[in-house]
Every structure is written in structure tokens, then in C-alpha cells.
Nucleic acid binder design. Structure first.
Length: 599
RNA sequence: GGUUCGGUAGCUCAGUUGGAUUAGAGCAGCAGCCUUCUAAGCUGCGGGUCAAGGGUUCGAGCCCCUUCCGAAUCACCA
């Protein structure tokens, strides 16, 4: 990473101001920003903070500082002008050329290296239930989790990606029961369905029959609450859950078989999404672990037991409510399980920071979990990060699996890839010499790029709208727009290579405003990565890539690279293009978006 | 009702630790630009009381207070 240029100017400005007006200038008082396009210069020093020291008008203060900077660093500042309280500095082109050269020569520009002593960050994401296939909400979770993991790594953290699979509970029993009743031995092989979809269908079937039973009971005069508990199907499902907990061999065997089907289905979806995990935890293996911790807390007096035998934490001193940790029958609840999972994770890894990628409907849960883990002595408990993201909404409201208004992940992926394929087929300028396999691979990269960018460019914590009627765009502020620019640059670089004009180093030449601006933007990648990490906000990277690429396309339109006759300029533009393509590839890589060589 | 998070163009969204008389993109609409490195591109036009009001200061979409609107949550579901 290199901010040498701005650092030098800032330092020079500090000493200049101290010499001129006396007193101490703190580093944060020196605000150096990009000069607005309508004014001459590239960097602007804001002088308002120094008016109290100078006791002069803004214009005069800026003038004096500007003159002093010219004397101090003439190799950097070649000219300046003053507009109100803004000191606009024109920087010697050689500085920009040097800066570009550094970025161009550094394949990991913007990234902080990871070493064995780097902090260890564990990121939990995905965390599906095994009773239905993944939908658009899960897609957002998975893409955010993956991108966040990449961003944290780029900021110099050792990252462990983890997934806690919710593989037990009443919901699985519902699918199992429905399959036993109406499945007639159907399997993914015999039905041709993906395993997760097959199980999901039986979950829906259960719900359909269950609701009929409830309806009938209500018509017979039972009140709805009782009917929901007394319906034969739900009672049967509960019996199955009890058998499962008692390790009934038949139930367990069925459970294993059906979960395996689901996992095979999930693996396909994960693969298509390009996400993976370093360590997968299964709730069936962790759900008992929390009890021990709760008992421990009970003995330490952190929690208390009620007359009925249930265990509670009183969080009213923290401004929250009382929270149940163990039921009267001794079984664990969600919170207990998360405590248990935390315990296992801490045994497995020396975690410095834990990040949970979970939807914002669970904000309260994680507020409580943080307090409980802290009380129980987990050093990272207090500072655990709940990366809380908003819901994906459809034009007529939320996605509800029961109402069949979910957008299925596999369907969506297939549609995006097919649309991308159609898009390139419709294009006037078609790629030549392209095989069927290549075309399909490009469609996959572009279609997934469109989907991923569409989701990741939005600030994670906001609810976002997805309209299935209007398919995701391929023009404008989209993944394909960025990928297209990359492919254009790669095309230029291939041709430069064929012509044997790939530069080794750069020499001094005149630069246009657009070229300088591009170098400045390139430099900004490091700041974007840093900010994305600090704020846990991958959308920073998406927006950064868009701005960079938009600027490059303007340059591409107005300037020629290969036909430039001045050798020094041509070399600069080739290096500039190469640096842009590299930063775009790295930036999109952080988002889990691939870039195609051609499209 | 309590807590948390949102409210920026017709629609979807940006807007870095407060900075420049004119708050930006994209989509949708209209008008231009391909014998020239990939037109999935580029250029232009129209479109806004940044929810409302007050405050802090050289300066507020951003910070503070109040109000209005929306979402989530406050379960012996996960």
C-alpha cells in the first residue's frame, strides 16, 4: 500500500502551517481531498480548520500556505490556485507516473498481507435448515458471507469460514413424516429432483395436510390454538422428534438418509454460488453442548432456576428482558444451542473475533447472545459482530415459503445464466472463434456476475427489493458492465502482447486530466478495501469498482491506447489499463465475482 | 408501548472522518455517436423542499433534539 504522495504533502502542509502561524497542527486537521473537476489541480487542501491559527481571511491563509508548499516540495507541487478556503494543488505529472508504476507492479495492491500472527476471524454464514431448498434470502446471506470473508482477509486477518447446519428439530421431522406417508419410496434418483427440492416438497405437503386437519378441527368447534397442537399430524411429528432424541435407529436412519439428499442438493447450489466453508458444524452434534455451559453459569449464580425447573437469565439490568435458556423438561432452546456452538468453536480455534452473518430479524437474539457469552467468559463474546442484513422483499411483500412466494435459488441462477446467454447471442458484435463450451462458460460468469453484483452493491443492512418480473439488468450499474470493461482491457493487452509493445517501465510524459484522475482512483482501492473491512460493508467495494470502471470507459472512449504514437504515452496508457484491469479483478474477486477474458 | 434499523429523482440505489453557489449514478423517457483498441459502451436533455421542524458552526443529506412514516423484534420457533 502506498500513500506516500499524500503523506508527503500532508506532512509538508503541517510543518508549513506550524512555521507560518505557530502552534501545533494535528494530523486530522489536514484534510486533503481530490480537487473537483471544475477547478484546476488534483489535490485540494481545506484551510478552514487553520483560520483560528492564522487569524486571516481564508483566501489569504490559503495563499500563504500554497506559497510555502511551493518552496518546500517543488518536486511535488508545481502550481496552486486558491478559491475561497480551498487550496488547489497541481501535482507534478512525474508523481502520478511513479504512483501508477507502483500500483501496476504490485499484484496485491490494496491488500494487507496475512501472516501466522494475524488476528483470527471466524465468520459464520449460510446456516440453512435442512427441510427446504435455498431461496433468494439465503443467496443474499451466502454472497454477503463470502464477500465479507474475502474483505476481512484482504484486511490482514486469518479467516475461518464456518456454517452451522440446522439439521435437527421439528421441521425435519415434518418432512420425514410426509415422506413416509406419501412418498412411496421416492428418491432424488427416481424423481429426478435435487434432494433439497425433494425434501422441500414434502415439507410443503406436510404443511398442506396439517392445515387441512386444523381447519377441520376448527369447524368441529375447537379453537384454533388448541387445534394447532392437537392435529394428529403435528402430534405424530412430535413423537418422531422424541424418538429421534432417544436415538431410535429407524428414525435416525431415515433422518440420515434424507439429510444426505439435502446436502447433495445444497452442495450444487453452493458450488454454483461459488461459496465454500472451512468448517461445518451440525446442530445435531452441538445442541447438547450448551446445557453444560448453562449449568456452569447456574452454579456461578449468573442464571437462576424457576420452580418449574426452567433456567433463565435475567437481563433486565442490561435493559433487556428475562431470557429462557433451558425448558422445564431440560431440553435446550435456540439460545442454548448457540452457546454450545460457541463453546465448540472456541475449543477448535483460537478465535479473536467472531462474526455472525444472520438476518436482521435476529438482532435481539444476538444482543442477548453477546451478553451471555461475555458473562460466561468468552473473551470475544462482548465484541461479537452480528453482521445484520436486511430482508429481500418482493413487489407484493416478503417472501413466504408457505404462500409459495419464494424465489428459488437454483431457478434464479439458471435464469440468470440463460439470460446472459441470450444477451450475448443478441449482440450485434458477436465474438468470433468461440466454442460452445466457452460461450456457456462466459454466460455462467456473466449471469452470476449480474446476480451477485445486484445483491452486493446494496448496503447490506437495508432491505432490498427484487422484482422477478423485471429480470436483473446487464446494462448500467451492473456486474456485466464492470466485466465488460475488464474484457475490453484484456483485449487491448492481448493485442499489445501480439505487437510486442508491452512496457517494462514508464518514463515521463504529459498526462491528461482523465489519466491523472484514473491514477487517483486506482490509489483509492486501498482505502475502499480498508473501509469495507472497518465497516463490514462489501458494498463499498462494489461501488468503488463501478466508479473506477465508469471513469475508465470515458478514458477508453476519448483516448486511444494502441494507436498512440508517443511511446511514453502509449506505455503509460498500457500500464494504466493493466492496473485498472488488475484492480477490477481483485475488487470483483473480493465480492466473489469472476471476470471474463472475453464477452 | 420498549428496543434496533431505515426514509435521498417516477423506480432501484450511491453519497467515505461534516466541505466548494449546481446533492450523484443506473433503470424508465427523449435526442445523438459504431469503415477507428469489444456500442453489455460514450455524450446530451428532462426529472429533488435529501420525510418535517428546530439546534450545533465558517459550512449539515451526514452530528444533536423533537415529530411523522416504514421495517424488524420484544415466544418454552429456529
Amino acid at each position: 500500500m502506498n500513500f506516500a504522495l499524500e503523506k508527503r504533502i500532508s506532512e509538508a502542509a503541517r510543518t508549513a502551517i506550524e512555521e507560518l502561524y505557530g502552534g501545533e497542527v494535528k494530523a486530522e486537521m489536514v484534510q486533503l481531498q481530490e480537487t473537483r473537476a471544475e477547478f484546476e489541480g488534483q489535490l485540494t487542501l481545506v484551510v478552514f480548520p487553520f483560520l483560528k491559527m492564522s487569524r486571516k481571511r481564508p483566501e489569504d491563509t490559503a495563499q500563504e500556505i500554497g506559497e510555502r508548499l511551493l518552496e518546500k516540495i517543488p518536486d511535488v507541487v508545481s502550481r496552486f490556485n486558491v478559491i475561497k478556503g480551498f487550496l488547489n494543488l497541481s501535482i507534478n505529472p512525474q508523481q502520478w507516473i511513479g504512483l501508477l508504476e507502483q500500483i501496476w507492479q504490485d499484484p496485491t495492491f490494496g491488500f494487507v498481507p496475512v501472516t501466522e500472527t494475524s488476528p483470527l476471524v471466524m465468520i459464520e454464514y449460510s446456516s440453512p435448515n435442512t427441510n427446504k431448498p435455498l431461496h433468494l434470502g439465503h443467496v443474499r446471506n451466502n454472497l454477503l458471507g463470502w464477500a465479507l470473508a474475502q474483505v476481512m482477509q484482504a484486511n490482514g486477518n486469518r479467516v475461518v469460514k464456518t456454517n452451522i447446519v440446522n439439521d435437527r428439530g421439528i421441521h425435519i421431522c415434518k418432512s420425514m413424516l410426509a415422506w413416509l406417508k406419501w412418498g412411496q419410496g421416492e428418491t432424488p434418483e427416481t424423481s429426478g429432483k435435487k434432494g433439497d427440492h425433494l425434501i422441500g416438497d414434502y415439507y410443503v405437503a406436510f404443511d398442506k395436510h396439517y392445515r387441512e386437519e386444523v381447519k377441520n378441527l376448527v369447524e368441529q368447534g375447537m379453537d384454533e390454538e388448541t387445534a394447532k397442537q392437537e392435529a394428529p399430524l403435528i402430534k405424530e411429528a412430535h413423537e418422531m422428534l422424541v424418538k429421534w432424541e432417544k436415538n431410535d435407529p429407524e428414525v435416525r436412519a431415515l433422518w440420515r438418509k434424507m439429510n444426505e439428499w439435502v446436502y447433495a442438493g445444497f452442495d450444487e447450489t453452493y458450488k454454483a454460488l461459488g461459496v465454500s466453508f472451512d468448517k461445518i458444524y451440525y446442530e445435531s452434534e452441538t445442541y447438547l453442548e450448551g446445557k453444560e455451559k448453562v449449568e456452569e453459569g447456574l452454579q456461578k449464580g449468573l442464571f437462576y432456576r424457576r420452580e418449574d425447573g426452567s433456567v433463565w437469565a435475567d437481563l433486565r439490568p442490561e435493559g433487556l428482558d428475562e431470557k429462557l435458556l433451558l425448558r422445564a423438561d431440560g431440553t435446550s432452546v435456540y439460545m442454548t444451542q448457540d452457546i454450545g456452538t460457541a463453546k465448540l468453536r472456541f475449543q477448535d480455534y483460537p478465535i479473536d473475533k467472531m462474526i455472525y452473518v444472520v438476518g436482521n430479524e435476529q438482532n435481539y437474539h444476538f444482543q442477548v447472545l453477546s451478553i451471555l457469552l461475555d458473562k460466561l467468559g468468552f473473551k470475544w463474546g462482548k465484541d461479537l459482530v452480528h453482521f445484520s442484513y436486511g430482508m429481500v422483499e418482493l413487489p407484493n411483500g416478503k417472501m413466504k415459503s408457505r404462500e409459495g412466494t419464494v424465489v428459488d435459488a437454483d431457478d434464479l441462477i439458471a435464469t440468470m445464466v440463460a439470460d446472459a446467454r441470450q444477451m450475448s447471442a443478441d449482440k450485434v458484435n458477436k465474438l468470433e472463434n468461440i466454442t460452445e463450451n466457452e460461450a456457456q462458460e462466459i454466460a455462467r460468469v456473466v449471469g452470476m456476475g449480474a446476480l451477485k453484483y445486484f445483491i452486493l452493491k446494496v448496503d447490506a443492512r437495508k432491505n432490498m427489493l427484487f422484482n422477478p418480473e423485471e429480470s436483473i439488468d446487464f446494462n448500467g450499474n451492473t456486474g456485466p458492465f464492470i466485466q465488460y470493461t475488464y474484457a475490453r482491457i484484456r483485449s487491448i493487452l492481448r493485442k499489445a502482447d501480439e505487437q510486442g509493445i508491452v512496457p517494462q517501465k514508464l518514463t515521463t510524459c504529459e498526462l491528461s486530466d482523465k489519466e491523472i484522475s484514473l491514477v487517483q482512483h486506482l490509489q483509492g482501492f486501498a482505502a475502499a478495501v480498508r473501509q469495507a473491512g472497518q465497516d463490514y460493508n462489501p458494498s463499498c467495494i462494489a461501488n468503488y469498482c463501478y466508479e473506477l470502471v465508469k471513469e475508465y470507459n470515458q478514458f477508453y472512449h476519448d483516448f486511444s491506447v494502441l494507436r498512440e504514437e508517443d511511446e511514453a504515452k502509449r506505455a503509460f496508457r498500457l500500464a494504466l489499463s493493466a492496473a485498472v484491469s488488475q484492480v477490477v479483478r481483485n475488487g470483483m474477486g473480493l465480492l466473489g465475482i469472476e471476470v471474463p477474458e472475453r464477452m
